[in-house]
Amino acid sequence: MQSISISMLTICGIEELPSHDKRLVTHVLSILDPEAPEIAAFDRYDAHERTTLRFHDIIEPRPGQILPQPEHVQDILRFGAELTESRTGRTEGHLLVHCHMGVSRSTAAMLTLMAQVRPDEDADHLFQRLREIRPQAWPNSRMVRFADEALDRGGRLTEALTRHYAHQLRAQPRFKEWMTQLGRQRELEMARD
């Protein structure tokens, strides 16, 4: 994302936010559960621009929970467009994207932003770069599908996601148990080389 004068990309969970308060974060995308309180850790950050989105980390309907919607991905893309437009006069920046654990919604959002900035970059390479930023990345499949459609990627992001899931299951077998507990069996079934 150097083309938008962002020299550092970070993905994390809420508990990790205090460890980034001295890292000169300039832009934050927060993805929170709708009922989550505001985050006090940002009070210790230097001045930064922050956008907050609120929806649950689910891939199928659940009573009382908000599924990620195409509008949420449009909000992420709007955030990315505003970041690009604000690059004038900025020589560097630090983008931090977080969700509750820094594993699913935030990694899907970062993938979306990287794909937006580099529309011709190979999808598998984008996932490789995502793993370099956040080794435990397990992007929310629903969000990736909406990003694929919004960015006219022709299914390539979704197809690469299946290979990413397979890679993650080999590298970190604990994902099988976690995703099963979270009701994300469909994503486990997607995993293939």
Results as ranks from 00 to 15, higher is better:
151 L>I: 13
154 G>R: 03
94 H>P: 01
121 E>R: 15
162 T>R: 15
65 Q>R: 13
134 R>P: 01
167 H>Y: 06
165 Y>I: 04
161 L>R: 02
111 L>N: 10
109 A>N: 10
72 H>P: 04
139 P>V: 04
154 G>Q: 01
102 G>V: 11
130 L>D: 03
115 A>Y: 03
96 L>P: 14
148 D>H: 00
132 E>R: 14
148 D>E: 12
155 G>H: 08
116 Q>E: 05
146 F>N: 00
117 V>F: 13
181 Q>A: 01
160 A>R: 02
65 Q>F: 09
82 E>D: 07
68 P>A: 10
176 K>V: 01
150 A>H: 13
73 V>N: 07
159 E>R: 13
77 L>W: 13
185 Q>Y: 09
125 H>E: 10
69 Q>H: 12
159 E>M: 14
85 E>D: 14
93 G>V: 06
156 R>K: 09
143 M>P: 13
119 P>D: 08
69 Q>E: 05
153 R>V: 08
173 P>D: 14
167 H>P: 11
112 T>V: 00
171 A>W: 14
181 Q>D: 02
76 I>S: 06
156 R>Q: 15
80 G>M: 05
83 L>G: 04
109 A>H: 09
178 W>P: 04
94 H>W: 06
168 Q>F: 10
110 M>P: 04
147 A>W: 12
126 L>I: 01
73 V>Y: 08
154 G>N: 03
71 E>V: 03
149 E>K: 02
122 D>F: 03
79 F>H: 02
170 R>G: 11
130 L>H: 05
64 G>A: 10
139 P>T: 00
184 R>G: 02
71 E>C: 00
170 R>I: 09
116 Q>M: 14
168 Q>D: 01
109 A>I: 03
98 H>C: 08
116 Q>D: 07
162 T>L: 06
141 S>V: 11
68 P>S: 12
102 G>M: 08
105 R>M: 11
65 Q>D: 03
80 G>F: 15
90 R>A: 07
120 D>H: 14
157 L>K: 08
180 T>M: 09
95 L>S: 15
76 I>A: 03
108 A>G: 15
75 D>L: 13
130 L>C: 07
177 E>H: 01
